[in-house]
Design a protein around this nucleic acid. Sequence first.
DNA 1: CTGAAAGCGCTAACAA
DNA 2: TTGTTAGCGCTTTCAG
Lengths: 344, 344
Amino acid sequence: MTGKTPRRAVTIKDVAAAANVSRATAARALNGYGYAGEAVVKRVAAAAAQLGYRGNRVAQALRQGQMPIIGFVPGDIQNPFFARIAHDIDGQLRGSHHNLIIASSEESETQEQELLESLRTLNLRGLIVAPASSGENAHLHRLVAEHYPLVLVDRVVPDLPCDTVSVDNAGGAQEAVTYLIRHGHRRIGVIHDESRIVTAQERLAGYRKALVDAGLPVKPELMVVSQSTVEHAIDATIRLFNQRERPTALFTLDSLMTTGALLGLRTMGLQVPQDVSLVGFDDFAFATFTDPQITVVSQPVGKIGALAVRMLMDRISGHDGPPRHTRFPTKLIVRGSVAHVANP
Amino acid sequence: MTGKTPRRAVTIKDVAAAANVSRATAARALNGYGYAGEAVVKRVAAAAAQLGYRGNRVAQALRQGQMPIIGFVPGDIQNPFFARIAHDIDGQLRGSHHNLIIASSEESETQEQELLESLRTLNLRGLIVAPASSGENAHLHRLVAEHYPLVLVDRVVPDLPCDTVSVDNAGGAQEAVTYLIRHGHRRIGVIHDESRIVTAQERLAGYRKALVDAGLPVKPELMVVSQSTVEHAIDATIRLFNQRERPTALFTLDSLMTTGALLGLRTMGLQVPQDVSLVGFDDFAFATFTDPQITVVSQPVGKIGALAVRMLMDRISGHDGPPRHTRFPTKLIVRGSVAHVANP
DNA sequence: CTGAAAGCGCTAACAA
DNA sequence: TTGTTAGCGCTTTCAG
């Protein structure tokens, strides 16, 4: 309230002076590296506490070349999937006195490039990225070429030699669609995005493979394109089910699309599973919230962030082996959204 | 892949050398402050581009005393409410070339203190915090006393002289409960947390006020305590509705609790709104997803983050007026979860 | 308009 | 065991 000016932060110089030692000694005493006499350590610690010394990590960082920070670039922090991963990264990091910078790419490759460029000037220790695109990714290649510690989560980039943590998207999708086929479904629709994102591509491949393996045709009219938002998925669903010969089942590639599908079907007055069976990729809170509950392919979300951090820390501390790729298995969680259907 | 060592980052020294000027001149030319000759600017720019000069924001920060970063400490980044705010802060910041550090307090005051202590050593420009507790908050008071740029979001701390952005919790709650009363409800249950969090306290006060204003008694047996998680709210709901004389309506203090209540009621076989009417504070994606859709008190989430950043930037650039407190109004969104009830 | 020099706070050789 | 010194990369007086 009153004009008390912000007092200059106390530096190690102040502490050293107060403890009657040199700056170097004070630093050694405080940070416990190198030698330091018993008495001195105590004296310095007392002085530091008394003055409220906090240290200046920017100065340390300049000296040591790096900030004790790692960066996370998700596709969208509002997506619960990424929010969960961010949460886990944060938790895992806390133990090692690092902070986390989160900068969402908003699923834009351009924005992703700009962000990486900007984060690079911050001298972070390393980066965890969910690449927005499966394209060239020259910016990521450059990072890797310069041995910048980098771990990809959720989405791999073909031929990019860096550690990745993802799930078995193709296998999970294949299992889901096979499950539908076993229930007698022959016309199985799928809502997918323009497949810029690798994850979606892989899931779509799994859909295809399941059909082919069962000797079923892959019909373009059953594959409808949507962006990964609830609104777009509603539209796509309506388009799909407005065809003369309707699908009897629907497979959606992520939880946002599943939600949209549910809403779209409801709008059209179609009942799940009586009129349409439904399986979605990625479990989500409200899948158990609907009536019937939705059968989904679930991913071990809780493991991704923690493992990514471990891999990254490993690289940061100098590990230089070949790239490691972890694919977690998915799990089909059978609930009530799939019905048997009779075949002619 | 091959043993290409990470090449040293190019510094302004390199650029200066390449352009045949002094470091000072190079810096001036690049950042456009002070004088710089036409030709020199061009030459330096060319050299910088050619060498891929990026600048080192850590060094700049050490020199200037601050990192171009602001910190956000939400109660829980997984809560969609905070995720949305984080997203907005991030977006708003991007324009001004700042980055965002997010560190969730996990609703723990202790953790919040440690985080602030840690973030302080990073010399950030300022902080946006949703305090986990309504208690003493000595750590926040200290920050403010030192004129550290600080804006509170969602939760105010009484007597803390700093800018805040929040919503009219008491008013919104009161409106919701009054709405229930108008529909004939007299036994209105509420699920609330231990009220460490200010926001919850205010909402509970609104509940009380609505009852009192209507001449209704505030009955302790209708007020059941839960933590703000889906699981706890399920339990609390079951406890509440296992009483001999059941409430005819239920008011929940946040979206997680609303979800829990819905699940709890379903478990008990109680129908909304036939058996129980329901209003929740805070709108959430799936409120329109249930059948019937849930009537809620909605907050203008999208405005909070942006305003907080604007206020913070204002402080950072030296504004020193008295603390400003913005309370956004809430809005009752009537959907289908409230029924009329006859009174004896 | 440009260069020289100092210094932000800290750490790490090297001496003592 | 402790102190001296140099320097991380940058900006900013102050001279020229």
